[in-house]
Amino acid sequence: MKKVWLWLLLCVLAAVVCIPMYFLIDGSLMGKGEVTEYLAPVMQNKNGFASFRLLPMYPTLRSYVELLLDSPEFFVMFWNSVKLTLLILAGQLVTGVPAAWGFARLRIPGKRMLFQLYVILMLMPFQVTMLSNYLTLDRLRLLDTHAAIILPAVFSTFPVFLMYRFFENIPESILESARVDGAGSWTIFRKIGVPLGSSGIVSAMVLGFLEYWNLIEQPLVFLKDKSLWPLSLYLPNIGLEEAGMAFVASVVTLIPSLLVFFAGGEYLEQGIAASAVKE
């Protein structure tokens, strides 16, 4: 009986969490006049509160047509988001995986102190390092380029911390057996470390995608040219007249995140569990 009540409670909580997503899809199917009527109290500072219907009075796909067929700037920003996210994740694979393996398995003087420094850097929010990053990127003449977003993110400490946990849990006996068989450090890393730590690598990539697909602060600070903006900055610049398109843009933006989440959900759980384990 307790399991039944627990299941019902979880279903209720899940429904509450899904309510915003439901109204998002609901609003994307409403006409411009209906959306304006419901959101006017908030968007135009009128008296009253915003309201919504459970179902649109006159469902329409007009907003989808306007966004997907008549809004080229949307696709420019969509491509910018894809470009930034993929290049950042690729860079983190190249730099983060070897770094995590080195921290976990190599005998390096001062390794523990250096890893603690990594953890401290991971805990620092963007606002703390924003000025120093800005001055550095300005000196390198990278401001107002995608490199200003990509390079700092490539050397993020969080994926290293996450993958480190998985590499550290590889039994030493396996690595020792490989050394006895004549395998070198590179061979052990490539043929044993990467396959056995693949769960950590994938979980870091999933978490990274969910973070970098929705970047807001970094593009706002480092990018002045709107043609370079990612999709996450498209929505804040839409007014009440384009509210229907804002709902549609939100739905389209949400789809890649949902696909990545469902594809890597199992690895994501493992990554969250690993990051919560104390050293």
Rank of each mutant, 00 (worst) to 15 (best):
S177G: 05
R105G: 02
F261A: 14
L196R: 13
G193N: 15
V251A: 00
R141H: 14
L162C: 09
V194H: 09
V97W: 10
M122E: 06
Y164I: 05
E279Y: 04
P59Y: 10
D225R: 11
A99E: 13
K2R: 12
L135E: 04
G182S: 08
A104P: 09
K46R: 11
D225W: 06
L175Y: 00
L151A: 15
F23A: 04
A273G: 07
F166Q: 02
P171F: 03
L259T: 12
T85L: 07
I174Y: 14
I170S: 08
S28A: 15
S275K: 05
L233T: 06
I19D: 09
G48C: 01
L84P: 03
M163W: 04
I149A: 10
Y58N: 14
L10P: 02
A104K: 12
K83P: 03
L106D: 05
A15E: 05
E217I: 08
L87R: 10
N47V: 04
V12Y: 00
V252M: 02
A104Y: 04
L233R: 09
E73Y: 13
I255E: 11
F166W: 08
L140W: 15
S173D: 03
L240N: 05
G91P: 15
V119Q: 04
Q92Y: 09
L68R: 00
K3Q: 13
I238P: 01
A178T: 01
M205E: 06
V35K: 00
Q218W: 08
S173Y: 03
E211Q: 11
L210G: 11
Y234E: 01
L6E: 11
L135V: 09
E73T: 11
M163E: 10
V160T: 14
L89I: 05
I192E: 13
R139V: 04
S185A: 07
P109M: 07
L259E: 08
L137G: 05
D138E: 03
F167Y: 13
L131F: 09
A183Y: 03
E266R: 15
L254V: 04
K2V: 00
A276G: 11
L68M: 11
E172S: 05
G91T: 13
L207T: 13
A153R: 10
P125L: 09
V17P: 02
Y134E: 13
A273F: 01
V65T: 12
I88Q: 08
Y234N: 01
A273K: 14
S81R: 02
L93T: 06
S232F: 05
S203P: 15
T136R: 05
A148M: 12
V65G: 10
E241N: 03
M1G: 06
P152T: 05
